[in-house]
Amino acid sequence: MKTLGQGSLASLLKILLDIVYYLLWAVLGLASLIIVLIVFGGISRLLGFGSELPLSIRQFLAMDVVLALPLAIAALAAVTFVVDRLRRIMATLIAGDPFVQENSNHLRAIAIGIAVYQLLHYGAHGVLSLMITLLGRPVEGGARVVPEFSLNLGAWFAVLAMLVLAEIFREGTRMREKQKLTI
């Protein structure tokens, strides 16, 4: 199987990335709807109008995981951003011209997206651990959650690798343009 052009491995990967991209948008929409319902439910309870929320919704809102939902939505947005940039790179591979300036920019943006995702992951873990500890809620087995920091070296290595690849693509594009001007 060829790697570039129509009917290639790149076109198959682009189809898979398209599916993942649209699924991520659906999950983002659902999570955003949950946030809107949480905000509306909180405002209606504060103002004292409307009926009491059903028990299942009140139990869901009482869960500690809901506290990290805004950070989870931001992390999903970062993942969606990375997948979108990968889709754009695959489009240039399908076209048979991977050494274009846009791919360098896409790789740099992917590196930034991965870094943002990692920072949001750390933030969500810290907020959730802190809230569980401050609210004094027991965790499975009766232990308390102590906020702990764990560095994902693989993800940070990927950020560095993407930045290096972005520079390689930028330089390759510059050399290609220079070669086109040479007779």
Rank of each mutant, 00 (worst) to 15 (best):
M1N: 09
K2M: 12
K2L: 12
Q6P: 14
S8K: 00
L9S: 11
A10L: 05
S11A: 14
L12E: 14
L13C: 09
L17T: 11
L23D: 12
L24I: 00
W25M: 13
W25N: 11
A26L: 13
V27R: 06
L30F: 12
I34N: 08
I34S: 09
V36E: 02
L37E: 12
V39T: 10
F40N: 10
G42C: 09
I43P: 07
I43H: 08
I43D: 09
I43Y: 14
S44M: 10
L46C: 10
G48S: 06
E52R: 10
E52S: 13
L53N: 08
P54D: 04
P54S: 01
L55F: 14
I57K: 08
R58M: 12
Q59S: 14
Q59F: 10
F60I: 12
D64V: 04
V65G: 11
V66E: 03
L67V: 15
I73D: 01
A74R: 00
L76R: 00
A77P: 05
V79I: 11
T80W: 09
T80V: 11
F81V: 00
F81L: 00
V82W: 05
D84H: 10
D84L: 10
R85D: 04
L86N: 01
R88W: 10
R88H: 11
R88K: 15
L93A: 13
L93M: 15
L93R: 10
I94G: 01
F99W: 01
Q101N: 13
S104C: 04
S104E: 03
S104V: 02
N105I: 11
H106F: 11
H106G: 04
H106C: 04
L107Q: 01
I112W: 12
G113C: 02
V116A: 04
Y117G: 04
Y117K: 07
Q118P: 07
L120Q: 05
H121R: 14
H121T: 10
H121L: 13
G123F: 03
G123C: 02
V127S: 07
V127D: 05
V127C: 05
V127K: 08
L130Q: 09
L135Y: 11
R137G: 08
V139A: 15
G141R: 06
G141V: 05
G142Y: 08
R144V: 15
V146R: 11
V146N: 11
F157D: 09
L163A: 11
L165D: 00
A166D: 03
E167I: 06
R170H: 05
G172N: 06
G172T: 00
M175S: 12
K178E: 15
K180S: 07
K180Q: 09
L181D: 12
